[in-house]
């Protein structure tokens, strides 16, 4: 499987990688392999939704148990940073969708540009998150669990708010970081000519993953920043 079988398509090494792609030995057609990969990714996205559903569930329960702590905690967040980050992620979702369209049309240069913008948006999201949000809050003692040392907390259970905040946004940030790694890999492979009109499975998969990362944030943003 690892070796490229040029006999099957009769193409030589001068052709780009995507034209020479041969599906795994157990597939009847390349379309079958593509469809299978897509079903696999969608199932994986379902597991992601369920993973985050635990956080949302915890949020709902503690909002009910300690509404004043959640309201106070939410008040510490600046909606402007959250808003900017939402816009940044939405742009990145658009550009990665465009990049997939670009490889489908074999516009390789535009694909590189769009993928790069996506990567930069992801980096920007994390930069804003760490420099303007995590950093100052951590310095004030608004920390997770037993590290919490903020002296001016107005309610008893404020540390739970911070636990939920850091767990939910932290796990999300980890997903963004993994996404950056995947997108960097896509750029590297795409520059080598691995993706084109007949083969872009990896692009499609990472694209779907990136959309779910975006979508989770779309729910986190109003729940954490906007609702008091």
């Amino acid at each position: 499987m690892a070796t490229i079988d040029t006999r099957a398509s009769g193409l030589t090494k001068q052709e780009p990688l995507w034209k020479r792609y041969v599906p795994g030995h157990h597939w009847r057609t390349q379309d079958d392999e593509f469809d299978a990969a897509k079903i696999g990714i969608w199932l994986f996205l379902a597991t992601e939704v369920l993973l985050f559903s635990g956080m949302f569930c915890a949020y709902a329960v503690f909002r009910m148990l300690y509404p004043e702590a959640i309201a106070a905690g939410s008040g510490y967040l600046d909606w402007r940073f959250g808003g900017i980050n939402t816009v940044v992620l939405l742009i990145s979702s658009f550009t990665i969708a465009m990049a997939i369209r670009n490889v489908q049309l074999n516009q390789q240069k535009w694909a590189t540009i769009n993928l790069s913008i996506t990567w930069l948006c992801a980096a920007g999201f994390l930069a804003i998150k760490f420099i303007f949000e995590y950093g100052p809050k951590w310095a004030e003692g608004k920390r997770i669990g037993n590290l919490f040392s903020y002296p001016y907390a107005s309610t008893d259970h404020e540390h739970i708010w911070w636990s939920i905040y850091y767990m939910a946004t932290g796990v999300h940030a980890a997903h963004v970081l993994i996404g950056m790694g995947l997108i960097a890999w896509l750029i590297y492979r795409q520059r080598k000519g691995a993706y084109g009109p007949t083969h872009y499975t990896m692009m499609e998969g990472v694209g779907l993953y990136w959309h779910i990362v975006d979508l989770v944030w779309i729910f986190l943003f109003p729940l954490l920043y906007l609702v008091h």
């Binding site: 037993n146 540390h159 739970i160």
Partner: peptide, 12 residues
Amino acid sequence: LMLFERLFQIGI
């Protein structure tokens, strides 16, 4: 969450 509960006492 349990891991963080054990390591950092996040209180959930």
